[in-house]
């Protein structure tokens, strides 16, 4: 059924108030349909664009944005003729999370000898796991490995330390002291800590170089 004719201009050709003008309708008709090949666009460019749109749709990206469809920024890497033309492969794209994961991964390795590797390693693993969209990106995967290595190093050093304390007998003596400790003594923990330090320094402490002692 056709709509009844309603004049949108008066007899002088001026727009009537409250109605869309022919000019507005013409502009709406001429708005580019990004699903079709654009003027001057080669078939290869058009197919590339559609391919990127499909990929974006799969990744739940905001493909309704004009910037995306015209391939200017954000999701693609420029237009045909650019050296790296085409969509950014997932493994090369970095978000804030993967950057944070990478930083924590490095810190977890660096701080192995200061005892913070577990903290930074766990944070790095959390960030790496949260940074993936469908699969791990390259940076996230590296960050995950580094953070895991930091966590592993922490537990490894912990086991080695406990083994050394047990084998030297310090562990047993400290357990005995804790058993005999007065629970009401407010300084008990501090005294225990001091004794432990003395024991460790006495057993593994830096010794004077030969010949320097009087």
């Amino acid at each position: 059924m056709t709509e009844p004719f309603e004049p949108k201009n008066n007899e002088e050709g001026q727009d009537l108030p409250g109605r869309s003008s022919y000019e507005e309708e013409r502009r709406a008709d001429e708005a580019p349909d990004f699903n079709k090949p654009q003027p001057g666009e080669s078939y290869a460019d058009y197919m590339h664009r559609l391919d990127r749109a499909r990929k974006a749709e799969m990744e739940n990206l905001d493909h309704s944005r004009e910037e995306y469809w015209s391939g200017l920024t954000d999701y693609g890497r420029g237009k045909s003729g650019d050296p790296n033309y085409g969509p950014i492969p997932e493994e090369y794209s970095m978000n804030g999370m993967s950057k944070a994961a990478f930083a924590c991964g490095i810190l977890s390795i660096v701080t192995v000898f200061f005892g913070f590797s577990l903290f930074f390693g766990a944070l790095g693993v959390i960030f790496a796991l949260l940074s993936r969209k469908t699969k791990f990106g390259r940076q996230s995967r590296i960050a995950l490995w580094m953070s895991s290595a930091g966590i592993f190093a922490f537990f490894f050093s912990l086991i080695i330390t406990i083994h050394m304390l047990v084998s030297s007998g310090i562990w047993g003596r400290m357990v005995e002291r804790i058993r005999n400790m007065d629970p009401n003594d407010p300084n008990a923990a501090a005294v225990l800590e001091e004794q432990l330090l003395e024991e460790i320094l006495g057993t593994y402490g830096v010794q004077s170089a030969p010949g320097t002692r009087a």
Partner: peptide, 20 residues
């Protein structure tokens, strides 16, 4: 697993895990 990692971070990791 995330809970375990949060324990390792002394609860700080919860800031990112809780939204997830």
């Amino acid at each position: 697993g995330y809970g375990l990692l949060v324990i390792f971070t002394f609860g700080l990791g919860l800031i990112w895990v809780l939204p997830y």
